[in-house]
Design a protein around this nucleic acid. Structure first.
Lengths: 405, 405
DNA sequence: GGATTATGTGCAGATTGTGGACTTAATCGT
DNA sequence: ACGATTAAGTCCACAATCTGCACATAATCC
């Protein structure tokens, strides 16, 4: 219950600018009349606000709408991708990534650099990332884009801008944004799973209510309700990987026992089909250039496609464990649908059945229909895109403040 | 992402009235100058807004503050409990309840009627409740209170005002508010666990971030983050009772297996100490007038106090199961603290240890400190009070609209 | 008792949205 | 082809609300 501030004239206008811009962005090209209808403001006011947005170059008029109706046709306005953009960054265990996204949600620049970041010093990695970011920004500036903010996805929980604990990097309590040092560019840091969920929201299927399940080296999840992310009290919500699946199961690195990650984490998935390692290396299609973890997942997919028994049972068991954890998650979080992302998206064909079966068996009485289980619409880019989108959201939420309107 | 409406002059004023009233209510008696500081509005504006609130009788001046400082002392204003109040109602398995609460959060009327509502027809029960509500309203009107709204707690999930499924009442898809028929009094219906959480928020310890665990006949939970309730996509979040504790455990009435309710629900708690039934009835202290379920919990408490072996192991096992389910809940919901309410509040001395132990053992690596486990500060009234508070929240959030300012 | 400090209010002025009249640009009907 | 009709967008006087400053008020300090 943060002490709420009163509304003054300038904040009223700032809010109305945001409402109009948000509506234009959300509902596609709209005429001023339609905007007046949607926002409850008068045509006069909308005209003035749109004029300001046009001046700032964030929206453009794109010609009269010829809808065959009677009366004067309106002039549709839509967001312009020509001026404003934001930077998305990601540090992950086996790669660094950067992207630039414009106001229309078009990806303008995309740069990925494979790397083995396990146990590396934060300074070194972040210097590499700064360089990558610099290249992406330079690309964007060549396209005459103005970068107004940045977002950064990291593989671990973030609290007050501090990366608390990234077990696979070996980092603890790192002030990532500060060490990254993007001179005068504000950079918001968040968990990879949270940002991937937002990526799915803004760049994916268009759904506004879902639980994004992020299968990376660890397992995380981000819940989106009515288009906004649920973070919990300290920003640590969504740790699906450590939901208890079997109370006296094998020990997990988190100190618990029988966590989901023990059954469906990448180590479990790959460990269950150990002999494949040799086979994969010998297979002609195996991409030798890719880092080890990724290659192994590729190998697992190949084995699954080939109908390998051990691989199929491993996937089936992981799917069942995932279904059990998701049963608890559905009861507690009440998500709209469930979107499987990351590694789970690649394994979707073999996971969908066991997950859905467990969910429907266990939820049948409580809900008329259990949540649908879907595959992520965007691939491995989800988190970087979400990071860029997060920064863009600040522009949408307060165009006046960001653009000095 | 509901299409958001623009801000107009009247909504600006309405918002500022709400901000000022909210601040007065939240931060106790405040002078106009302090309000100006807190809200960011000017003293002039605050003066005008406060004048309107004084006219409406929702706040009162209570004399100059003599703080020993230099300068003219301010006049503190605080909310007035003399004019506005709301009605809270509850249908539960073994009682009906009504209460009237004023703007200062003082309970002005409280009426409880024991009843055995298992499998009863909604019409009959709701007619009884209407009568009880009428009596409470009459009491309030004798005290010159104006009832501006009502809230109703029911023992089951509510969606769009429809009570979906109350297994212990045997009700399904009942439009409770409509059938209750409180002529021109708006009545919002919600889950007992949700409203108990809000009751704890507004009438309890004053914490703003917690997971309220409601141990009634079933087990529910309500998550409060930063002073507001998390409801999930369809309003069904917080079903802690059906979190999976043992994947292949005994069947639960929900269709799943090994749900928390199987291990820590009231039936499990009482069933584990069956032989006591006879003993309880024979005990001199047993309140024979109370309904069966309640008497049994009284009996269990007596046995626990007497050190009965079977009772102690039953409580210990329930506590462990609760700890396991809460481990998953903490990972997914990230609550501030955990508040045990309802039956669990009465059993708190015997549950705290096992619950805390399981939580700290399993969460140690992921969080520096696992959430504190506390006992509900208010007793069995949590849900009715929350229902009244929910209605009161509408007054706070829009005094202009409700009071026709 | 005068200087100082802080509260609360009055009044002119600034900002922003409103409402209706007006202009513009299309379709429809004859 | 041309006027009637309809709807979009703009202009302008007006209204609602907040601001900023001046000023009266009421305490403490010395």
């Amino acid at each position: 219950m943060a002490s709420s501030r009163g509304v003054r004239h300038d904040s009223m206008r700032a809010r109305n600018l945001a409402v109009v811009l948000g509506e234009i962005r959300a509902a596609g090209p709209l005429t001023r009349a339609a905007l007046a209808e949607l926002t409850g403001l008068t045509k006069t006011t909308v005209s003035k606000l749109v004029a300001d947005l046009l001046d700032a170059g964030v929206v453009v008029e794109n010609g009269a709408v010829r809808d065959g109706e009677r009366g004067r046709p309106g002039v549709a306005v839509s967001v312009s991708g020509h001026r404003i953009a934001t930077l998305g960054l990601e540090v992950n265990v086996d790669y660094l990534a950067a992207c630039v996204v414009d106001l229309t949600r078009t990806v303008r620049v995309r740069r990925v650099r494979p790397a083995d970041n396990r146990g590396s010093r934060p300074e070194a990695i972040l210097a590499d990332l700064r360089e990558l970011a610099g290249q992406a920004v330079a690309d964007a500036e060549r396209a005459a884009l103005r970068i107004t903010g940045a977002g950064l996805a990291v593989p671990g929980p973030v609290q007050d801008g501090l990366l608390r604990n990234a077990p696979h990097l070996g980092w603890r309590d790192i002030g990532v944004a500060g060490q990254l040092g993007l001179h005068d560019l504000a950079c918001e840091v968040d968990n990879e799973a949270n940002l991937a969920a937002l990526g799915e929201l803004w760049f994916g299927s268009g759904e506004t209510d879902f639980l994004y399940v992020s299968g990376e080296i660890g397992i995380g999840a981000g819940l989106v309700v009515d288009g906004s992310l649920f973070r919990g009290t300290y920003g640590l919500a969504g740790e699906l990987g450590h939901v208890v699946v079997v109370p006296d199961g094998p020990a997990c690195r988190c100190g618990g026992r029988g966590c989901l990650e023990v059954y469906a984490g990448q180590d479990a998935l790959l460990g269950a089909v150990v002999p494949m390692r040799g086979r994969v290396a010998a297979m002609p299609g195996a991409a030798a250039a890719l880092p080890a973890a990724s290659a192994s997942i590729d190998g697992l997919v190949s084995l699954l496609e080939a109908g390998d028994r051990a691989a199929l049972t491993a996937a089936g068991q992981a799917g069942e464990a995932l279904g059990l954890a998701l049963t608890s998650a559905v009861h507690l979080l009440d998500p709209g649908t469930i979107v499987l992302g990351g590694v789970f998206a690649r394994l979707f064909p073999w996971l969908e059945r066991p997950v859905s079966d467990v969910l429907s068996a266990r939820l049948r009485q409580m809900r008329r229909t259990p949540p649908r289980v879907a595959m992520s619409a965007i691939g491995a880019d989800a988190a970087v895109l979400g990071a860029a989108g997060l920064a863009m959201q600040r522009v949408i939420a307060d165009p006046a403040g960001v653009l000095a309107l």
